Computed example of a mutant assay.
Amino acid sequence: MAELPTTEGEVAFEVPEAGKPCKTFYKILGSLEATTGPVLIALHGGPGAGHEYLSPLGDLYAAPYNIPTVLYDQIGCGRSTHLREKNGDEAFWSFDLFIRELDNLIDHLNLRGRGFYLLGQSWGGVLGATYAMRHPDAPGLKKLVIAGGPASIPLYLEGLKTLLARLPADVRETLEDCDRRGDHHSEEFQKAAKVFGKNFVCSLDPLPLEVQAGYKNLKEDPTVYLTIQGPAEFVIVGSIRGWEGWKEAHKIKVETLLLNGKNDEVTNLAMYPWFKTIPRVRWVTFEKASHQAHWEDRERYMQEVGDFLASTDPHERKA
């Protein structure tokens, strides 16, 4: 396979409430000049995990799809502007902030005319769905992929209970005890949390370096993660607590593909309301994957996403 062309850049992002100049770092996998069709924009999870772990999406630049992908670090993480002084400021770290950043990047790259697809993974799926719900007629938006992005945080937490029950008793008891004591930083908690991650976040051993980079981003600056989510995947005390995005999902006009893994921390319970509510939707569950099917079942994942983006059938509804 020929070497994947890549381009890196930065775009100024005006955030008056930040009190300082801000920028968004982006990386393009593939060439925008060598292709003419819509571009895929990938929204990473965390929030705050950064762009690196979504690098397999560069596979879509190969034939027969020939789709370039734009990765970027959302504000507050990676190589974009950090705002540690905004830790705990729920009003600042709003959906509006991240939607403005996304629109700023789209306009900077002049993607409205040629069109773009959105693929959001985990928190990125929540962000992508929110963008499509709030801007159903957004110029250029062609299709949406929600990969492991819960439709409901209460249902996400409900589904997690069934996953936690599957862990070894000593691991489960450690997590429960630490949570009762508000201990989410000790070595014993982190060790038990890694067992959860191995089962329901990414089952590969060793973890790909790009996935490790996501954990490193979260560790080096947990500002956004702590404010929006909380101290762990299964402890949600941040601003997204109680979120029920599916209630507005009927507003999504574009064709939508739902993805999750059989052992995904975002269980079918948390994905189903998207399927029930979004008018033009398809749902695929990867039997050999957890939360990072783009790594765990990479070939099939790219085929499912590529075929969906290339398809012209606007009314397929299939689980």
Rank of each mutant, 00 (worst) to 15 (best):
T267W: 08
E265R: 00
T277M: 12
W274F: 11
N263P: 00
A249C: 07
I228E: 08
L209V: 14
P208R: 11
R241A: 12
N199I: 00
N263S: 13
W246F: 13
F196R: 08
I278S: 08
W274C: 05
T277G: 02
Y225F: 15
R241V: 08
L269E: 07
E233Q: 09
H294L: 11
G197D: 13
K253S: 10
E220I: 06
A289Y: 00
A193E: 12
L269I: 12
R282D: 03
P206I: 12
V266L: 00
A293Q: 11
V237G: 06
Q212V: 02
E210N: 14
K219Y: 15
P222Y: 01
F234K: 08
V281S: 07
N217R: 06
T267L: 10
F234N: 13
A232V: 06
T227H: 10
Q292D: 11
W243V: 06
A193N: 14
V237T: 15
N260R: 03
N263H: 15
K251M: 04
P222W: 07
M271D: 02
I240V: 10
K198M: 12
S203C: 11
K219C: 01
K198Q: 15
L218P: 07
W283S: 09
T256I: 05
V201A: 12
F200K: 01
Q229S: 08
V201Q: 12
E248G: 11
K247E: 12
V235E: 12
F196E: 09
L226N: 15
W243S: 09
G230K: 06
T227L: 02
N199D: 09
A193S: 13
R282N: 11
N263V: 01
F234R: 07
I228M: 13
K247D: 05
D205C: 08
S239E: 07
L218G: 11
M271T: 04
P231E: 02
E233V: 02
A193W: 05
Q212I: 09
G261I: 04
P279M: 04
Q292P: 01
T285G: 02
E210K: 15
P208I: 03
L204F: 07
R282Y: 03
D264R: 00
D264S: 09
K262M: 11
M271Y: 06
V284Q: 15
L257Q: 08
D221G: 04
D221A: 09
C202I: 14
G214N: 06
I240L: 11
D264Y: 01
I240S: 04
K251E: 11
L209N: 13
K276I: 03
L258P: 01
D221E: 14
Y215V: 05
T256G: 03
F200L: 06
W243P: 05
L204Q: 14
Q292M: 15
E244F: 09
P206Y: 11
L226Q: 15
K288C: 03
G238V: 01
T256P: 06
D205K: 15
E244M: 04
A289K: 03
L204G: 13
K216L: 10
